[in-house]
Design a protein around this nucleic acid. Structure first.
Lengths: 136, 136
DNA sequence: TATCAATCGTTGACTTGTCAAACGATACAA
DNA sequence: TTGTATCGTTTGACAAGTCAACGATTGATA
């Protein structure tokens, strides 16, 4: 297992990321990151950006900018925490719930990965990635 | 297997990509993409940018810019193909061979993935990614 | 042979991530 | 009460990818 083989593997991961991210966006109309972000906020009801950061392991700056876009599109509402004016509280709008539900029911998006991998393979892949990510 | 689960998996891939790419650069001093690019060129001896594009599945614009950086660092030399003035021929320099060899012998970089996954797991992961990528 | 299309590479505008510096709260200590 | 440290967010500068438009060359064809 030399460095060249390792770099090949890592580059495969890079290509996979690019492929799946752009397919996801093409099929659902949502960027993968913003879809995840909406789901994270939706599942919590209301949450601060710090929570999103911890959940998604993404930079603060990226969060601020994605939320700005989501706000412009009418998918989230933000307001300062009255008890702690440093924090911004975020929650999803009715429109977001509707649009998310809509593409959830759309068949196309679900074929994204399922076309390439069986349920077990997906399970396996997820496990390996988790192992890999926890060692970062 | 609903869309939410799929997006979780895809986001895991994204995180993995970010982790491994930055670890690779930290440990080797080479950006993953430029390391791959140097290896591709080195293995071919001399090649046009079109070949790099096909091999690495990366955009033309990115190639031009990476090669510019590699050229500035003295890692590659470029010259027009005398038989076809549209093409640029690229080859790696002596310095590149040396520096690549140097970090190949460096232990740290090799621990990158091996720390997290066994040889079989790596094999398995590679297979799954290949399957996933071929379906893009 | 003159023109028209295809090929190869470059450039500009945009996206999405990073890090670092700055900012307005807040909390705490002297 | 007054610094001072810390927190949560924002902003600016950068990296690396995309796409689309362009420019130069080459090849095909009418």
């Amino acid at each position: 297992m030399d460095l060249r083989e390792i770099s090949r593997l890592l580059y495969q991961i890079k290509l996979a990321e690019q492929n799946v991210a752009s397919s996801f966006e093409r099929e659902t109309g949502f960027s993968l990151t913003r879809y995840e972000m909406l789901q994270v906020v939706k599942e919590r009801g209301v949450c601060s950006q710090r929570v999103i950061k911890e959940e998604m392991k993404i930079d603060n700056a990226a969060i601020t900018r994605h939320l700005k876009i989501l706000e412009e599109k009418g998918y989230v509402v933000r307001e300062r925490n009255a008890e702690n004016h440093r924090e911004m509280f975020v929650r999803v709008t009715e429109k977001a719930e509707q649009d998310l539900g809509h593409c959830e029911r759309d068949e196309r998006a679900n074929h994204l990965v399922l076309q390439a991998l069986s349920a077990e393979e997906i399970q396996h892949l997820s496990g390996l990635l988790q192992k890999l990510n926890s060692h970062a």
